[in-house]
Nucleic acid binder design. Structure first.
Lengths: 345, 345
DNA sequence: TTGTAAGCGTTATCAC
DNA sequence: GTGATAACGCTTACAA
């Protein structure tokens, strides 16, 4: 079966390849008579013509592909529910612009070369990076190259476009909920170590909420999670053994539902009860959180919109549009379920 | 910054572009003196030369990209943990062969055109399809086109290469475990409707296990899940209300951990206890299953290997290798945790 | 309003 | 062993 080229379409429509290209790409400048346009469109359709991506890319210098790059370890990826949640919105917008999504995992430490590779090979037109960290010098490369990049998450003092939620205020909201319920001593397990901006911000929100309520910030009840349930289990266990039985806390803010899952198991394994002994608030509202026992009170992220907006801005950047508000923050919502019980008496 | 082309490398090494191409692609036939080879390699390195993907694709007729296509609804994708679990192995092998992974969601109903599009545009060299169904006529298109395709999952009587687990025997193993514990009346909720081969196979394994134990197959305690926890909740609730209180069952086999999560919540909401009132076995061993309350006994899938093998076979097909065993079945493992308790007395 | 022709950066087919 | 030279299929000035 011979390939159908734009030449064939041109021949059938009785025009030149130029005209075919102009029509099919809907080029703004050039005026094409409605009649020719229709003729071209019909011929293309009749022949089942689909432009070859590689040829188009070579000539136009556009791959029409954007990359989503994840730098977490395989193990973390596996329990990462975020990816699947943003995928929907992201692919929706990517399709809207007639593009495609390439997904890649990068080994930590080899990112610099990988970015260069992707850039030089022109495999992708732009990049979405999830979960930025402070002082990631691989990012410098991207900045210097001027490679269109959108961050999912925030990175202060950087020139990258970013799409994020306001982690500080979301965490604030979560902790305030706990305080409103009468809790005075609230432990915290972060979602990750503080080199991740999201983790630092969520901890900051926690701190702020305590402060505004006139409550002390006590480092002995702060722990650092590491994305997965295992870390939540370990950290909560530590908290329980080292602190809880001496100086009890009545609630915990766990800055990730996935981490909270492990923490919950640790609490249960010590024979303690949620929310009676310890009230819990999570973060992210992953799909399973409404089905845990008890259902988890948490912060809902607008994941579809996060994905959609990241894609939209990236593609607009690629198309040469000037993005006015480089950093946008989407709204979160406190979802109250049953892991906090009622007001303390 | 001017782009570095193979011309530049050729010039610097004092050879022709042909030679550069031969060296860099490690072409088998042509003999290149070790000395020239080194010279070319060094020049390329010094200049930071990276071949342009589009040009390569155009000339070689290889995009060096494989596609992973998902046809579930956005809502199902969001709670799909399988994707992230196979991603690791899949990307590992894709990188091994110097390729990339493109991911796409297809709206149900528009698959035929989408496949044609992908094929005609030569955007991808081959396709991995997850969760095939009986009588999916979009698949016929792929078969007719002779487009390299690997199925994750099985489709009897098809010519596609497939990588799967033996769902029948895995389900058999799960149910046999329950029977071994003394259960005689075991309900079942499938992972999806029976147009999905995996769902049909798992139900078949359940049935077989009952039969081999001389237990009756009772349709009144069979329900069909739909990938997500909501469906599990609804079906278990129905089972409880319509059957359990009249003719109690003592255990349930839920052919998906995600669905089981919902079922578990339904059981709890009725004030029943797992495993005391109802023992539960799931399927998939998703990351959260060891942290549910109680931890879920389930069937572990070799997700990394599933991804790896699917990618490996696809790429070998693309490279023109002849795959001897078209259908491979990977081993599963029964993971015993606490959702079945001890032997019934 | 439409056509001509020159790239885009590779790979592949032959000669030498 | 190595080098011209012709594809590959499209876009895009520029000309008509």
């Amino acid at each position: 079966m011979k390939r159908v080229t734009s030449q064939d379409v041109a021949r059938k429509a009785g025009v030149s390849r130029t005209t075919v290209s102009l029509v099919l790409n809907n080029v703004q400048g050039a005026q094409i008579s409605e009649e020719t346009r229709q003729r071209v469109l019909q011929s293309a359709n009749a022949l089942g013509y689909v432009p070859e991506a590689a040829a188009q890319a070579l000539a136009s210098r556009r791959a029409k592909i954007i990359g989503l790059v994840l730098t977490r370890s395989p193990h973390h990826i596996a329990s990462d529910t975020f990816l699947t949640q943003i995928l929907d919105g992201l692919i929706e917008v990517v399709h809207h612009y007639g593009m495609r999504l390439m997904i890649d995992l990068l080994e930590v430490g080899h990112q610099k070369e990988a970015y260069l590779q992707l850039f030089r090979a022109k495999r992708i037109d732009g990049l979405i990076l999830s979960g930025p960290r402070f002082q990631d010098d691989a990012l410098r490369v991207l900045e210097e190259l001027g490679f269109p990049t959108v961050l999912m998450g925030n990175l202060p003092n950087s020139n990258f476009c970013s799409v994020d939620v306001d982690n500080v205020s979301a965490a604030y909201k979560a902790v305030k909920h706990l305080i409103g319920l009468g809790h005075r001593r609230i432990a915290c397990i972060t979602n990750a170590d503080l080199s991740y901006t999201a983790a630092a911000d969520r901890l900051q929100g926690y701190r702020q909420a305590l402060q505004d309520a006139g409550l002390p910030y006590d480092e002995s009840i702060i722990r650092f999670g590491d994305f997965d349930p295992d870390s939540g289990y370990a950290q909560m266990e530590d908290l329980l053994e080292k602190v809880f039985f001496k100086e009890p806390f009545t609630a915990a803010f766990i800055a990730s539902d996935v981490v909270a899952l492990g923490a919950k198991a640790a609490i249960r394994d010590k024979g303690l009860c949620i929310p009676r002994d310890i009230a819990l608030v999570g973060f992210d509202d992953v799909p399973f959180s409404r089905y845990t026992d008890p259902p988890l009170t948490t912060i809902r992220l607008p994941s579809h919109d996060l994905g959609w907006n990241a894609g939209d801005r990236l593609i607009r950047m690629i198309n040469g549009e000037n993005i006015e508000d480089k950093h946008i923050l989407l709204e979160t919502e406190l979802v109250i379920r049953e892991s906090c019980g009622a007001h303390l008496n």
